[in-house]
Write a protein that binds this DNA or RNA. Structure first.
Length: 466
RNA sequence: UCCCUGAUAGCUCAGUCGGUAGAGCAAGUGACUGUUAAUCACUGGGUCGUUGGUUCGAGUCCAACUCAGGGAGCCA
């Protein structure tokens, strides 16, 4: 007997007049004393449930079927037929229902057929995948990841796996997690009494990566179009809906490209992703539209249709200074824009994503390319309404003398970066890239308000339980 | 890390002026001629986050701590 997914049966892909098998978990059970029960079955293959009609003529009707509760695992055999009731295309007329796994103590089973708060579900991270929301998030997350790989692949990019362990202790992107095999109770010490990392596993102090960018630039200088897609770690004590200690990041890097090319790539990539989600996951998006964020679908359609606004930092400062809006923090040229400023630009002034470009060099990283004005660098941030900075990127400084001057200015030692500087000594070319926070992207697409709810097992300060 | 708010049944919450604990959903039992997070009736279910303090008496007032949420900073 052939097994069919819930998705296939609802799409009418199961053969008519043939007994098939479905397998999954009970969402709800409704009884009718007409002598039958309705079981809503999910197997995660799509948003919808398959309705299984089980009549009291089944041998285990009273003993088992009437005791099924949310979460029970079952297999059912039967005919897939057009539904006699409203609300679903097809349903199964069951000839057998086998219970594979009961729910122990249904009263305390956390996942009940009712609304749960996201905070509660976060405490039940091992069970929350069984909910409508998390199932929909998981499928959309997968769709986005696949779309990103497809977008780059179709455009001739090569996926480069940059290292997760790194000895660069000054990548400048944030606090880092140390990785060590030294005995923390009794570690070897230098004459100065500090930990002697020369006796550690790698012979020097080692961390988890905060960015694959510097590494991926080396492959960019050989393969022209490359990107990373992998986990990233930041030991910042950030407690917000947009930060995780462990998150996934996509970092394309393109040779012979400038800032305008970079912005165009970011825009094309986001549009490609949004189109893919709307096309491939209409069921899940309809759910997000109804229960999570009214208007998400129109939001994405608008992003696909309209050109992203490009705006120079200097212009943004002028707008903010003359808009008449009272900000908690005053705006002047040279400051790092506050969340309230970015939000005003994206949400009020433009009402759509904005690509802010050419920031003052003093508030940006050392590797960003110095513009001819000597004051700004070719950096860009993509600000999305509602979530803020979703992408940060730049054209890189390809001129060794300028890069060295910048490193001196910032006070970075050259020796650890000799390999990064070598890229500028041997066949250097203009190049540019950006970083996309994967969870921020998933949150934006689904309308979910917290990145902790779009990653299966969020890691945040004080939370590494599951 | 800073500011604000919160923690009461399995879940979501109410709980007045300090006077001895409530609802809805879920669960159990029963009713109901195909239901759509069904409906109706009944039943069981509580260390009021932790510790200490004030008081004859604390879910309620005070302090500290823990955790969570919103905002900020840092950033993706």
């Amino acid at each position: 007997m052939n097994t069919y997914s819930v998705k296939a049966t609802l799409a009418g892909k199961a053969p008519a007049e043939t007994t098939v098998t479905v397998k999954g978990w009970v969402r709800t059970r409704r009884d009718s004393k007409a002598g039958l029960s309705f079981i809503a079955l999910t197997d995660g293959s799509c948003f919808g449930n398959l309705q299984i009609v089980a009549e009291n003529t089944l041998s285990n009707y009273a003993s088992e079927i009437q005791h099924l509760t949310a979460g029970c695992a079952i297999e059912a055999d039967g005919l897939i037929v057009p539904s006699q009731g409203q609300g679903q295309s097809y349903e199964m007329q069951a000839t057998a229902v086998r219970v594979i796994g009961w729910v122990d103590d249904p009263e305390t089973y956390p996942i009940q057929p009712k609304p749960h708060s996201m905070e509660f579900l976060r405490e039940q991270a091992h069970l929350r995948a069984r909910t409508n929301v998390m199932g929909a998030v998981a499928r959309v997350r997968h769709t986005i990841a696949q779309a990103i790989h497809r977008f780059f692949h179709e455009d001739g990019f090569v996926w480069v796996n940059t290292p997760i362990l790194t000895a660069s202790d000054a990548e400048g992107a944030g606090e880092m997690f140390r990785v060590s095999t030294l005995d923390m109770m009794n570690f070897p010490r230098t004459p100065e009494g500090k930990p002697d990392f020369s006796q550690d596993f790698f012979g020097k102090e080692t961390f988890l990566t905060v960015s694959g960018q510097l590494n991926v630039e080396t492959y960019c200088m050989a393969l022209s179009k490359v990107y990373t897609f992998g986990p990233t770690f930041r030991a910042e004590n950030s407690n917000t809906s947009r930060h995780l200690a462990e998150f996934w990041m996509i970092e394309p890097e393109v040779a012979f490209a400038n800032l305008a090319d970079n912005a165009a790539l970011a825009e094309a990539m986001l549009k490609y992703v949004f189109k893919a989600v709307l096309a491939e996951r209409p069921d899940d998006m309809a759910f997000f539209e109804e229960r999570i964020e009214k208007g998400v679908i129109a939001k994405l359609e608008g992003m696909i249709k309209n050109e992203f606004v490009r705006m120079d930092y200097t212009e943004a400062v002028n707008i903010l200074q003359n808009c008449g809006h009272k900000f908690d923090y005053d705006v002047s040229w040279g400051i790092d824009l506050q969340s309230e400023h970015e939000r005003y630009l994206a949400e009020k002034h433009v009402g759509a994503p904005v690509i802010l470009q050419n920031y003052p060099k003093d508030i940006k990283a050392f590797y960003m390319r110095l513009n001819d004005d000597g004051k700004t660098v070719a950096a860009m941030d993509v600000l999305a309404p509602g979530i803020g900075e979703i992408i940060g990127g730049a054209q890189r400084e390809e001129r060794l003398d300028v890069l060295d001057a910048r490193m001196d200015e910032v006070g970075l030692p050259k020796e650890p970066y000799y390999w990064y500087r070598d890229l500028r000594r041997y066949g250097t070319v203009p190049h540019a890239g950006f970083g996309l926070g994967f969870e921020r992207c998933v949150a934006y697409v689904t309308g979910m308000g917290n990145v902790r709810d779009v990653i299966p097992f969020p890691r945040t300060p004080g939370n590494v339980r599951f």
